[in-house]
Design a binder for these strands. Structure first.
Lengths: 84, 84
DNA sequence: TAGGTATTTAGATAAATATCTAAATAATAT
DNA sequence: ATATTATTTAGATATTTATCTAAATACCTA
């Protein structure tokens, strides 16, 4: 739960998730969408991956990232229990 | 949205919300439930208040905090849009 | 195998944050 | 009025985190 909230607590990472909602993207394409260095984006992707919010598929030279929404169930449940 | 996720990104603060779900509590009672100094808890309560996740009612010498779940709708909506 | 492209890892740095103690504020009670 | 209790504010510190540049790794192609 901690990892999840940590991963979601960053505007850049949330935007990455929103982009991946539309379509799978390579690390490079994701990085190009931001005014942030590739290593920094790589770090953000790593955090998202550790939180299981995205998955990575190596395709030759490229690494394609996909959104994983199943883990979001946990957040949803937690919030819903608060709302009684 | 940023404030909200920031506020939720802390185990202590999430526990406070869970406690307030059960019943309203004074700052002191909340602080007593943790192994953390009162000023630190006061700071956490301030962050929750700024995020509009709790409200505070002054009752004489005491300040009673209550959970405010309406703002959680925003988080729910954001997550649900990700889930398509 | 040599060179190019995609991505990550390593190491450094500045900013944000959680925590503490001490002091300030505010209300109550003697 | 003074002391006591509840809470916050101020200031300091250690840890975490987002970012950068430079270097390493991995794959592809000629």
């Amino acid at each position: 739960m901690n990892y999840l909230f940590k991963a979601l607590n960053d505007e850049t990472r949330r935007q990455i998730l929103e982009m991946l909602k539309e379509k799978d993207m390579t690390a490079g394409d994701i990085a190009d969408a931001f005014n942030i260095s590739k290593p920094s984006i790589s770090h953000h992707l790593d955090i998202l991956k550790r939180a299981d919010l995205v998955s990575a598929q190596k395709e030759g030279q490229f690494i394609t990232y996909s959104l994983n929404t199943t883990i979001l169930e946990d957040v949803l449940k937690w919030i819903l229990t608060l709302k009684k």
